[in-house]
Nucleic acid binder design. Structure first.
Lengths: 226, 226
DNA sequence: TGCATTTGTGTTGATTTTGTGAAAAAAAGG
DNA sequence: CCTTTTTTTCACAAAATCAACACAAATGCA
């Protein structure tokens, strides 16, 4: 299957890198633009872009302008990134045909979730709403977790963390990766906070806590083949 | 079972998006048109459209014209969307065979309710007019609610909210989702108003109030398996 | 073994989110 | 109009979560 192309336009290199890496890992192909003009250039030179992620605030041509220009010729889905502070101009956005807003800071998990939701709607594949592995069952829709058939209560972060682990069964995850995916990208705190969450998660899922393995000097891994 | 096709014609992208998303979630298939001509094109190119939702005010060919053209060849149900300001021309509408009017702004719940009511009348599937779960009984037709056999009084919004919860048993609902479904789509107020309504609802349904669970950092969920 | 580094864990204060009562605003009914 | 009801906003209280810290335990390495 062909990888879908996503154009990411943001003037902050750091954000582009984070988003790009995560999207690539999620199986998309990524084009990057550092400002609005670059975005338009890329848009015109690639005929098969599946979705655009635009920062509102960009040099040369801001997100709104890019959106407007693109909409003049195409119905490709557009996601707008807005700073939390700047009031999202819902009306303006909807008039311009913005499909979705995401406020900075966001977590990459959320961004990718929205992206795949939109692409799925436009006509693609269904992502997994229920995860399960050896006695652990996670129902994302209901936001419920069962261990050996018994429900357990998890906090928001714990839930997100568990999902992330289960989505990446058998893959060694560095603390940095975990932070970048489950936490908002503007979180510059101590990476050890992950340890605390892992601790709570392990204790809450009881005996199955062993599935979360420590990789010394590296991070964690959720047990599992593939 | 085949999903019923609904054609939605409105020049505002935002409204199309909201309506489309909600209808898709309700199990319908949706075709979209941004103006009257597009609507006619789609109508002619799809033989099995079950119902049309037409905005009165549309570029190129307005809702009345589309209605007239469609009626010349088909008896498919038609719902007209009118702006609150513009007087609905009831006579004109009935002459043209409009099945139902809905004034903007409307809530998606209402729109879908009317749609399924019409489709049922025409001879389709029977949707739930009476909801009940563990001692809570809701009669939508009569707009009455019973808790353990005793009737309780709910305001309009409270009633709608309760129905929405009961229709989505076991599904984690974000405040955004709730707003988009139960409130009119032009409501840009504080999402905390939901909290207030939840509070009143909980207190009015007494001990059963526990069924409405808070999902911290996320929203609410009505208890229930499935 | 001993040392340096990394991870596990209990605790705690700060932060965020939700609950709640009351006031303000808006709608509905006379 | 004025009254009554409903809906929304606001402010503060209560609750839950989170991040940081400190120290213990475990691990890797020489």
């Amino acid at each position: 299957m062909e990888a879908l192309k996503i154009l990411v336009a943001d003037d902050e290199f750091r954000i582009r890198k984070l988003v790009r890496d995560y999207l690539v890992k999620s199986g998309y192909e990524v084009l990057e633009a550092a400002d609005g003009e670059e975005a338009m250039d890329l848009f015109y030179s690639h005929k098969d872009i599946a979705l655009l992620v635009l920062d509102v605030m960009m040099p040369k041509l801001d997100g709104w302008k890019v959106c407007e220009e693109v909409r003049a010729v195409s119905k490709v889905p557009i996601i707008m990134l807005t700073a939390r502070s700047e009031e999202r101009d819902e009306l303006k956005g909807f008039a311009l045909g913005v499909d979705e807003y995401i406020s900075k800071p966001f977590s990459l998990k959320v961004l990718v979730a929205r992206i795949s939701a939109i692409l799925r709607r436009v006509g693609g594949t269904e992502p997994e709403e229920k995860l399960s592995y050896r006695g652990i069952e996670v129902d994302r829709t209901a936001h419920r977790v069962f261990v050996d058939g018994e429900e357990i209560e998890l906090s928001y972060k714990e839930f997100e963390l568990l999902c992330f682990f289960m989505e990446n069964k058998g893959i060694a995850l560095s603390r940095e990766k975990i932070l970048n995916s489950v936490w908002n990208f503007d979180y510059y705190g101590n990476a050890r906070t992950i340890d605390t969450h892992v601790k709570k998660l392990r204790s809450k899922i009881g005996p199955k806590g062993d599935y979360i393995r420590t990789i010394w000097g590296m991070g964690y891994k959720f047990e599992g083949e593939e």
